[in-house]
Amino acid sequence: MIIRKLEEEDLEAVNAICMDSFLQSVAGSLSDEGITTFSNIAACDAFLGRMKGDNLILVAESDEKIEGVIELKEGRHIAMLFILPERQKNGIGRKLLLSALSYAKTETVTVSASLSSVTAYEKYGFERSGEVDESAGLVYQPMEIKLNERQACVLQP
C-alpha cells in the first residue's frame, strides 16, 4: 500500500469511498439536511476546490485501487477520513492518519468526529475536547490530539 497526494483522476473514486462509508455508518443517524450537507462536501468539485487550496488530501492505494482518503485542513484539522467499508479495520486509517499528521503545522490537531467514529479516533490517541454539537445537520464530537504527547498512541500498531 502506498500513501500519496490526491490527483484529479482520483476524485470519483474518493467521492464513492466517502459516500459508501458515510451511508453505511453515519447517515442513518442524521437528518436529511445533514446528509445533503455531507453529500455536498464529498462532491468531486468540492474536493477539487479544496485540493487546489490549502488542504492536504492523501489517498491510500493498493494494487492501483484507492482504499481510503484523509484530508488535513490548514495543517491543523482532520476534515475527512474514510476507508472503503470492506477494507476497514485493516490499518489503512492509521496509516493515512499518521501520514497526514506528519504534515501538521500545529502541535494540536482537531477533528469533528461523527459519533460512530469516536471510538476509532480514541484508539488513535484523540481525546474529546467539548460537547457533542451540530452544524448544518451534521452531528459531531469535537476531539483533538496533542502531537508532542500523544503521537506514540497513533504510532502503535
Results as ranks from 00 to 15, higher is better:
P142F: 04
I66D: 09
I66T: 09
A79C: 11
A43W: 05
M80N: 12
V132F: 02
I35H: 04
E131L: 10
A46F: 10
M1F: 03
R87E: 14
G34M: 06
E134V: 12
G49L: 02
G130S: 12
V118M: 00
E134T: 09
I145M: 14
L23N: 08
R76A: 13
K95M: 06
A60P: 06
L96W: 01
G68C: 13
L81M: 14
G137A: 10
S129Q: 09
D54P: 09
L147Y: 12
L147P: 11
G93Y: 05
L72W: 09
T110L: 01
I35Q: 05
K73R: 14
R4N: 10
T110I: 07
E149G: 11
M19W: 08
D32Q: 14
P142V: 07
K5R: 15
F38C: 13
E71N: 03
K73L: 13
G93D: 09
S31T: 15
V59M: 06
A120D: 04
Y121T: 02
Q141W: 07
I70V: 15
L84G: 09
T108E: 13
S114W: 00
L115A: 03
E144A: 13
F22Q: 05
S29Y: 00
R4Q: 11
L84C: 13
V109P: 08
R4F: 05
Q156G: 12
L84R: 15
P157T: 15
E122N: 08
T108L: 06
A27T: 01
N15K: 11
G130E: 04
N148I: 15
Q151F: 14
G68I: 05
D10P: 00
V132N: 07
N55P: 01
L6Y: 00
D45P: 01
H77D: 10
V109R: 02
V111F: 02
L138H: 05
N90S: 14
A113H: 04
E67H: 12
E64L: 11
L155D: 08
K89T: 09
N15H: 12
E127V: 15
R128Y: 10
